[in-house]
């Protein structure tokens, strides 16, 4: 179980996350919603410890992860995978190596640095890729793939970490609608199949309603909503998003003509 207690993060005078407390049971698929700048990203980055909190605690299975350092911190990050809006792959490395970066914690350092990955780890990485229909692209440079493909590689990297929780920071914000659906579906599959907790920042309420089992709303870094998706009425959405509300609630745009979608992909 993930327990967040009084979590605060300040950047200079600005407060990105403000005295946030939250409990998330294992196996949940939680969507974090709120307008841009509400502190969603900062929250996820603090859980992975890409950023350190100013105050408060984050507990995973009763262990305080805000005080971890050195090897313990690396071990925590291996258990807590992260998926980014911009995929954050090494564009020059091939797809398989990018996925194998997720195995770093399970492989002796010298083998990894020389790229002499054990056969078993290659099998795991390849299975993860196959699961997203990407097995045949294993030898391609990651930078040459489309956005949707890159995000699936990033998901495979997260999966091979054998994590207990996956943090997804706006995973579909840079994708076209078709790829967005595919990536959200993949996250939902991972959540159901392996029971991995998923914490997913989303801008689109439509996707959040359809995929998440619970929604958490942030505004100015404070918790303003925490309930099942059905409880998210238009009025609540209005208060969460203000003038942005129309943007995020509108039903998705009509399907793009095939040629255009392919061009975008």
């Amino acid at each position: 179980m993930l327990v967040i207690q009084g979590l605060t993060r300040r950047f200079g005078a600005a407060t990105a996350v403000d005295n946030l407390s939250l409990e998330i049971p294992r196996g949940a698929f939680v969507g974090v919603i709120g307008r841009s700048g509400a502190g969603k990203s900062t929250l996820l980055r603090m859980i992975n410890r890409l950023q350190d909190p100013s105050e408060g605690q984050i507990l995973w299975q009763g262990q305080d992860i805000t005080t971890l350092r050195g090897a313990e911190l690396l071990a925590w990050r291996a258990r807590c995978a992260m998926v980014f809006q911009q995929f954050n792959l090494s564009p020059r490395l091939d797809v398989l190596t990018n996925v194998l970066v997720g195995r770093l914690h399970h492989v002796p350092t010298w083998r990894a640095l020389l790229r002499m990955w054990p056969q078993a780890d290659r099998a795991i990485a390849l299975s993860a890729l196959e699961q997203f229909g990407m097995g045949t692209l294993a030898a391609q440079a990651a930078g040459q793939l489309s956005g949707g493909q890159q995000q699936r590689v990033a998901l495979a990297r997260a999966l091979v970490q054998e994590p207990e929780i996956i943090l997804a920071d706006e995973p579909v914000a840079s994708l076209d609608p078709r790829n967005a659906e595919m990536v959200m579906q993949a996250l939902a599959d991972i959540n159901q199949r392996y029971g991995i907790t998923v914490l997913c920042n989303l801008h689109s309420l439509d996707l959040a309603r359809r995929y998440c089992t619970r929604l958490v709303g942030l505004a100015h870094g404070r918790l303003v909503f925490d309930d099942v998706p059905a409880a998210l009425t238009d009025a609540v959405a209005q208060s969460l998003y203000g003038i942005e509300a129309r943007d995020v609630m509108d039903s998705p745009p009509p399907a793009l003509p095939d040629g255009f979608a392919a061009a975008v992909a």
């Binding site: 056969q119 099998a123 795991i124 390849l126 045949t136």
Partner: peptide, 28 residues
């Protein structure tokens, strides 16, 4: 996930021989 992948190892090896080659041309 790990056990599943390992169980499939022979099949994966057959499908993607290039991935499991210890010595690739680039490596050599």
């Amino acid at each position: 996930m790990r056990t599943e992948a390992l169980a499939n190892l022979p099949q994966l090896r057959q499908q993607h021989p290039a991935v499991f080659r210890r010595l690739t041309w680039g490596g050599v």
